[in-house]
Simulated scan of single mutants.
Amino acid sequence: MNRNRSLPWIYQKSRWLIGAIALLGFALTSYLTITKLTGNSAVCWAEGDGCNIALSSSYATVFGLPLSLYGGIAYLSMAVLALIPAIVKLEDKSQGDRLENWSWNLLLIGGTGMTAVSSYLVYLLAFELHIFCPYCLASATFSLSLFVLTLLGRLWEDWGQVLFTGILVAIVTVVGTLGVYANEAPPTLINGRIPIPALKTASTPGIGWDITTKSSTSEIALAQHLSKIGAKMYGAYWCPHCGEQKLLLGNKALSQINYIECDRKGKNSQTAQCHAAGITSFPTWEIDGELYPGIQSLEKLAQLSGYEGSQDFKYIIPGLK
């Protein structure tokens, strides 16, 4: 009788299942990594754009690189460990047995570590950021599935050793993760939104401050609507309130806005147009022929312009109505 046929199906298919789930996790984290590195917003159906809030938080970057990049490496490693022994059959039985044992032990270590990290990140989502991130929860589900399949997918000879290894790896992983995030202060959300960061002490001459905030799909849609109806934002590169207005919109949305630079020393200055429009303070918005001086909240811009799209805006200026 063929020995493989006498094994439970989970033992026969576990490596393929682990490999498939790991490749799904790799695809997910690759998408998030590319999105993060290119400065784009992830497609998100969560209320309040929780996906992009999570991706733009300080927790989403480790040692200057996207956290999802490390996750992608972990998923790819798990896929290789699971599939290579299933695909490559060594003629030397002793070498094949060693590859089998080493790969399972490494899968146990990897699955345990990934589950420990994912559990901590889910805790941060629920109790620190207070947001719902489908991508994050999907990744956590993948990690847990890899861990469970590793435990159930093999006839382990020494469960005491498995338990000892799992506990040790989990402790080391949690301690290391806490150490990495020890100096990360979670953002204080206001009504589920992130307060804009403080401007640096000095702006770049002729250009202004770097706009580091990343627009969500709602900001981009509002900006496209404002551009479509001919709305304009008048400002000056040295104006702090103009910088704050730009941060509120985010970099992608700002690129859609018809921004008029009023200082003749600024880049692409249009001073004559500012004088013709009667601009006396910055920023000033012109919407449907009316001037609205001062920083405007995104809700106010939506109201003034007749915007009827999604208002799950990402950032907020405390106290601005």
Rank of each mutant, 00 (worst) to 15 (best):
V148F: 13
P195S: 10
W156Q: 06
N258A: 10
L144M: 15
P318I: 12
P197Q: 06
I287M: 05
F132I: 07
L28Y: 04
N4R: 14
F164K: 14
D97T: 00
W16H: 12
T35I: 10
G153F: 10
C44D: 15
I73T: 05
A276Y: 00
Q303I: 02
L32Y: 05
G153Y: 12
T201Q: 14
G48T: 07
T112P: 04
T115L: 14
S216Y: 02
G111S: 04
L304C: 02
A272S: 14
L108Q: 02
Y31L: 11
E184S: 12
V62F: 09
W209L: 10
V162H: 04
F142E: 00
H241M: 08
S58Y: 02
V174A: 10
R15Y: 05
E91R: 10
L28T: 12
F164D: 07
K232L: 03
L24P: 01
W45N: 14
V80K: 03
N258M: 07
R264N: 13
N258F: 08
K246G: 14
D312P: 05
P187G: 10
A46G: 10
D288S: 15
S269F: 11
L23D: 07
T284E: 11
K265I: 06
Q12F: 02
N105R: 11
M114Y: 00
L155S: 15
W16M: 12
T115W: 10
P197D: 04
M78F: 04
T213H: 05
P85K: 00
Q303T: 09
P134T: 04
F147N: 13
C44F: 08
T173A: 10
I207T: 15
I207F: 11
Y237P: 08
S6L: 09
Y135C: 00
G192D: 06
P134A: 02
L304S: 03
G235I: 06
I211N: 06
I260R: 08
A60G: 07
V174M: 11
E219L: 01
D49K: 01
V122G: 00
M233Y: 05
A116S: 03
Q161G: 12
K300T: 13
L106E: 01
G160W: 09
M114A: 15
I73P: 04
W159N: 12
S203M: 08
S118I: 03
G39F: 01
S30K: 06
P205T: 08
Y123P: 00
A54F: 14
L298E: 05
I220R: 06
K93W: 01
S305D: 07
G319K: 12
P318A: 10
V175H: 02
L301T: 06
C133P: 07
G235S: 13
V117Q: 03
S305Q: 09
P66V: 00
F132P: 00
P195T: 08
V169E: 03
G208M: 07
Y315F: 15
I257F: 14
C274F: 11
Y307C: 07
S215Q: 07
C262A: 13
H275S: 14
L23Y: 03
G294L: 06
K267E: 14
I229G: 01
R154D: 07
K300D: 04
S41W: 15
L137G: 01
Y181W: 13
A138I: 05
T204H: 11
P283K: 11
I229A: 01
K232Y: 03
